[in-house]
């Protein structure tokens, strides 16, 4: 219908505004017309062209997805139609198939199962061990500032999953078709290349699906 992209950031908990800002800046740098909004209701989820699940606490987002009538259904529906989704840190956990905590072990929590990966939560340790470092991301370069805050890592991946980045032998970024997951917070690095990569996939997907 038009070239304008409508990008949603799941607005339940976490660094929602930071992702809105990063995606908005990415759109501007790409000269791409579009808008980024916070989404908390099923009807909002149904009308977006791409979804970002932000950083925060995955257990909290899971609970809020489960509790709000229709929200889980709408997310399942957009997953079914192949909507591009990017999850950063907690967002990647929410998208995963399996997850356990490094210290506490298995924790009952809602996962969308869209990424065929298993997650180890708090994989690099507690906040004291949170860190920043340059990382190597395929398709982007070796100079991306990775912001790891109580970050998870990917322990194993299914056959459809492409590994985009590893740090110290741990998998920290993956892609499965239109779905991207990162252990780190690209929205906090002041570098919008990851968000741009995601927006490109949204534009492609929209073109293919809307004509």
């Amino acid at each position: 219908m038009n070239d304008q992209l409508l990008i949603g950031v799941l607005g339940l908990q976490g660094d929602i505004e930071e992702n809105i800002k990063a995606a908005t800046n990415a759109l501007a740098e790409m000269n791409q017309i579009g808008k980024v909004i916070s989404v908390r209701y099923p009807e909002e989820i149904m009308k977006i062209d791409g979804l970002i699940i932000p950083g925060g606490e995955s257990t909290v987002m899971g609970l809020l997805i489960a509790i709000k009538t229709g929200l889980l259904d709408s997310l399942s529906q957009v997953l079914q139609k192949g909507l591009p989704i990017m999850g950063t840190c907690a967002g990647m956990i929410v998208l995963a198939k399996k997850s356990y905590d490094r210290v506490v072990g298995n924790k009952k929590q809602l996962l969308l199962g869209a990424l065929d990966i298993e997650i180890e939560r708090n994989s690099f340790g507690r906040q004291f061990d949170s860190f920043e470092s340059n990382i190597d991301i395929s398709g982007i370069g070796n100079d991306f500032r990775g912001i790891f805050i109580r970050a998870p890592s990917v322990i194993s991946v299914g056959p459809q999953v492409q590994i985009l980045s590893k740090f110290d032998e741990k998998i920290v970024a993956v892609q499965q078709e239109n779905i991207i997951g990162t252990s780190f917070h690209p929205e906090l690095s002041g570098d919008n290349r990851m968000h741009k990569l995601f927006i490109e996939s949204i534009a492609k997907w929209k073109k293919a699906n809307n004509h």
């Binding site: 930071e18 004291f128 109580r150």
Partner: peptide, 20 residues
Amino acid sequence: KQTTSGTALIKRGFAHMQKH
């Protein structure tokens, strides 16, 4: 790779993850 912990970004960033 060189890593840095305890920067203002990492500490304030943690607080940002608590938002909402």
